[in-house]
């Protein structure tokens, strides 16, 4: 009964009964394309055209400004540390959730998702409440001369918090689908827990890990809300690229703002391309 119906004799019939008339199809497609151009292509083109509005030399000058350089360095540093931390914690969390059964597992999965459901501004405020001058640890930190808020550690903490779910979320379904029998086989062949993880578990999820890291990195570099709250906007010190874009824009330095923004847009395009390549590897039908 479930055998596929012969297509050719039915095709003409189905095209008239199962699909809309040509003009409706045309209108819907045109609307979709219009939306795509208006909301995605146009802004992207605008970013680059504004960035290059005074020529390539001016564009480069805007990017080698000390402030821009500091923002780029800080963004890369923060993203590097955050992605590194989330890679380690994400791997551990996904491994525990996907390969073991323990009480409170559902609770842990919800907790992992928390940063996605909380507004980034709130995420930033949490750290102000914890480490700010009036916060819980504020006085102690001050008396020991440790600066967390309005400094790199605070930005790293906020970014790490906001981007935590990416690696875990990329890995849990993959690891659950793969099950535990390969690990059991490795253990029964005499491999230690660590050897099993590095020789069996990790190679099986390497594309998933890369995928998670990629998305995590894109978000870490682009994070605005949480970082804006904890950074303190100290020029040349605690401004990341998204913050600098805002500052430059508010100061009517449109060309410079778009020049920095163009780097973030470029990052988005590279991420998109890399994502498409990785998804081919993650597709079980291809790999």
């Amino acid at each position: 009964m479930s055998a596929p119906l012969p297509l050719s004799p039915l095709r003409s019939a189905s095209s008239s009964t199962l699909t809309e008339p040509r003009w409706i199809r045309g209108t819907i497609i045109a609307l979709a394309v219009l939306f795509l151009i208006l909301l995605i292509v146009l802004p992207l083109v605008l970013v680059f055209s504004q960035a290059f509005s005074r020529g390539f030399a001016a564009y480069l000058r805007a990017l080698v400004e000390p402030e821009a350089q500091a923002a780029i360095r800080l963004t890369i540093l923060v993203a590097g540390i955050s992605v590194g931390l989330n890679l380690v914690f994400g791997l551990i969390a996904a491994w525990a959730i996907a390969k073991f059964d323990f009480p409170g597992k559902t609770m842990l999965i919800s907790l992992v998702d928390l940063p996605f459901s909380v507004s980034p501004v709130i995420s930033g405020l949490v750290f102000v409440l914890l480490f700010g001058g009036q916060g819980y640890f504020g006085p102690w930190l001050q008396s020991h001369d440790i600066q967390i808020l309005f400094a790199t550690p605070g930005i790293v903490l906020a970014t790490t918090f906001v981007t935590f779910p990416f690696v875990v979320r990329a890995l849990i379904p993959l690891m659950q689908e793969q099950g535990t029998s390969e690990e059991e086989a490795a253990i029964s062949l005499g491999a230690s827990g660590l050897a099993t993880f590095f020789r069996v578990t990790l190679p099986n999820i390497k594309w998933g890990v890369l995928y998670g890291v990629l998305l995590c990195n894109a978000r870490a570099m682009g994070e605005f809300g949480a970082v804006a709250v904890v950074s303190g906007h100290i020029r040349g010190e605690t401004n990341t690229m998204p913050l600098l874009v805002e500052i430059l824009y508010n100061e009517y330095q449109f060309m410079a703002a778009f020049a920095v923004a163009s780097l973030l847009a470029l990052l988005a395009l590279i991420t998109l391309a890399a994502k498409a390549i990785l998804e081919r590897h993650l597709d079980p039908n291809i790999d």
């Binding site: 390969e182 059991e184 086989a185 490795a186």
Partner: peptide, 29 residues
């Protein structure tokens, strides 16, 4: 533990290491 019992286990769905060649699968232990 399982690794110290010197027991060979053949799984129902084989549980071969999918990212290793046949040779490396057999060599794993």
């Amino acid at each position: 533990g399982a690794g110290e019992r010197n027991v060979g286990f053949v799984f129902q769905h084989y549980a071969l290491f999918r990212h290793m060649s046949v040779f490396e699968n057999v060599a794993f232990g």
